[in-house]
Each structure stands twice: as C-alpha cells, then as structure tokens.
C-alpha cells in the first residue's frame, strides 16, 4: 500500500514536471507573441504620430496661405470675411 502511494507520488511528480515544461514553453511563446504585438503597436504608434504630424504640416496656416496665393487665379480662395458670415446667416433665415 505504502509502495503504491510512493509510486503514485513519483508519477505525479514526473507528470507535473512535464506539464510545467509544456506550460513554460507556451508562456514563452505567448511572451514572444506579446513582444511582437507591443513592437508592432509601437511602430504603429510612431507611424500614427508621423501621419498626424504630416497632416498638421500639410494644413498649417503658413502653407495654406502660400497655396491660396499661388492658386488664387484658379480657385479664388481668400480668408473668410465677416460679410460672408452675415450672408450665410441671412440665407439660413430665409430658408
């Protein structure tokens, strides 16, 4: 009876070690995956910042003014005037 108990303990122990190995292997895999995700997240974040920066640079008032001056003959764009807003308000009231 005692021998059986010891043997069963022994087997449990061996199986636990195997189990542990499998789990630790899985954990390593997951950590690797997590690192990859974090790394790609970081890259995406950097890209996002770059895109945001690019958008701000492209819509910066300085650049818009230069462009509006350059393409004035075609587009006739100029800074908004108070009269225009009054005109819009009148149109809204009419409708």
């Amino acid at each position: 009876m005692f021998k059986l108990f010891v043997y069963s303990l022994f087997f449990t122990f061996i199986s636990l070690i195997v189990f542990n190995q499998i789990i630790s292997h899985e954990i390593k895999d997951k950590v690797r995956e997590l690192n990859n995700i974090n790394y790609s997240l970081k890259k995406e974040k950097n890209k996002e910042i770059l895109l945001k920066t690019d958008w701000v640079v492209r819509t910066s008032p300085e650049r818009l003014q230069k462009l509006s001056e350059k393409y004035y003959p075609q587009l006739r764009l100029s800074p908004s005037k108070g009269e225009n807003i009054e005109f819009i308000n009148q149109e809204i009231e009419k409708n």
Partner: peptide, 28 residues
Amino acid sequence: PNKIISNSIKNPLPEIYDRNDKLLATTI
C-alpha cells in the same frame, strides 16, 4: 516577465495641442 516591452511605448513627453485640438508639438 521582464522581457516584455511595456513602458517604452509611451512618449516620454506629452503632446501639446491648441484650443481646436491641432497638434503643436510631439515626440517621435
């Protein structure tokens, strides 16, 4: 586990916006 990159994702300095949420300064 100490191998995970967790803290380095965040920018070391905050971004600065104007009143209309236009970006003024950022860190890359």
